Computed example of a mutant assay.
Amino acid sequence: MHRCFILLFCSTVTLADGLPWLDDLPANAPLIEYYDEQPLPEPGSKLAVLVDRIDRDLRRATGFAQRLLATLRVRINYRLYTTGADATDITAWQRAYTEISIGRNPFERDPGGLRGYYAINDDSCQVFKVFPPKDNPQPPKSGLPLIVSMHGHGWQDWYRPFQLEGYSTDGAYVISVHGRGSADFKWIAEDDVLAAIDAVQADFPIDPSRVYLTGGSMGATGVFQVGAHYPHRFAAGFADSGNTDITAWSDFEAEDPADAYGALRARLRGLTSPIAFAENFLNLPLIITHCKTDSTVVHSQRMAKRLRAAGCRDYTFTLRDGEHVDLQPMADRFDALRRFRTNPWPYRVMLKAASYRQATAYWVTIRHFERRLEPAELDVRR
């Protein structure tokens, strides 16, 4: 079977000359809000020397060695952020660094816990957490399922460095991803999810046809966001009380009715919203649930309506009593998801994309966008 490349032509969008609001953006404006402060080693200390060596080697290393160095780095960061380091910690970290330098794995007896990967986009080490199966089964040749747990937004610690939530279960690996804090799992936060999955698949016996997305609140937004952009990488998703577009934050922003670029801004924001790409769930099953009295319940209702209108049939939508987020135990979520497997060659593919980053799904690829700021769409059959 050959990969299908399809050239698409999109409708025209007219823009005013120039974008002066970009000129008003501070030169050092971050892509997302700043993290809480991450404590640094005291300059000139043994730990500072060790961290400098790790950072130097990280940029040179590749593959497994780089992931081991990144894991050591995030574990050092975590200890500094939580309790601080003592002489015993530093000695253990120096020993681990030496083992990595001679090709050994100092974490071999500790396969779970905090892990790291090197993010080339901003020269940093990013964290995720691995939960091995509780029952420690013998993996089949195809590997074990992987459940990706995405955390909620929170209200008082939006950008602390270690936002991780997840729980182990029988018969599957679980990873908790950080997603760059509270960024709705968009942009570099989306990259974070994919990079963490890649790292786990490289180092653990994972069945690539049984990777599942789960999350509540902002984590459910992540299920919609990452699933809509990369449906071919996942077998199914479980989303509890997530938002599906930027209107979830409208109460926090005052729009200027005289803003000459309001329509453009709305268009750009729309292209970041997963509901705009609901067609992409044609072959990715979704289990959607939402508290019936929640202020954001309209988001799940709109997503279910869009899925139905797009012809997506493999989804369920349930309104429930309770709190904003009342996620089922991981074992129950896994029971609901475990029957699904990724089909890499579905008969029909619907793909909508606004960026080359998300322009491939299954056996089709969008190779050209004729109009800027306009998504391309396809609906093809083998």
Rank of each mutant, 00 (worst) to 15 (best):
T342H: 01
E253F: 13
R95T: 11
H229L: 05
F128V: 09
Q156D: 12
T62I: 04
I54H: 08
L378F: 03
E37S: 13
I366L: 02
D321E: 03
D123L: 09
L31N: 12
I120F: 14
Y78G: 05
K141P: 11
R79H: 13
L72I: 05
R60A: 11
A260I: 10
A172N: 10
L19P: 15
N136K: 15
E165N: 07
A276P: 04
E377M: 14
I288Q: 06
G171M: 11
L40G: 08
A336Y: 05
D245G: 05
P375H: 01
G215I: 00
D251I: 12
F369D: 02
F224T: 08
F64V: 08
T82V: 14
P231F: 00
D321N: 11
L8D: 12
A278F: 07
P106F: 01
L378S: 09
R302I: 10
A278S: 06
T247P: 01
F185R: 03
T82H: 15
S149L: 09
Y78F: 03
P208T: 01
R306N: 15
I147F: 09
D184R: 04
L58R: 02
L319A: 06
A239N: 04
P274V: 00
V380M: 05
F9D: 15
R210A: 07
T91F: 10
A236G: 00
D157T: 15
A65R: 05
R104W: 04
T91A: 10
A119T: 09
I206Q: 02
G116T: 09
E190H: 07
D52R: 13
G270A: 05
Q225F: 02
R382I: 10
L22C: 09
A376P: 04
Q358D: 07
Q358N: 14
D256Y: 05
L271H: 10
G84P: 09
E323I: 11
T365D: 04
T272Y: 09
P41Q: 00
Q156S: 13
Y35T: 14
S45P: 14
R269F: 13
P346H: 04
Q94P: 12
L284Y: 02
Y118C: 03
M218S: 01
K129C: 12
T221P: 06
S176G: 13
V200H: 04
L7W: 12
G181T: 06
R75D: 14
P344H: 05
S176K: 10
I54Y: 05
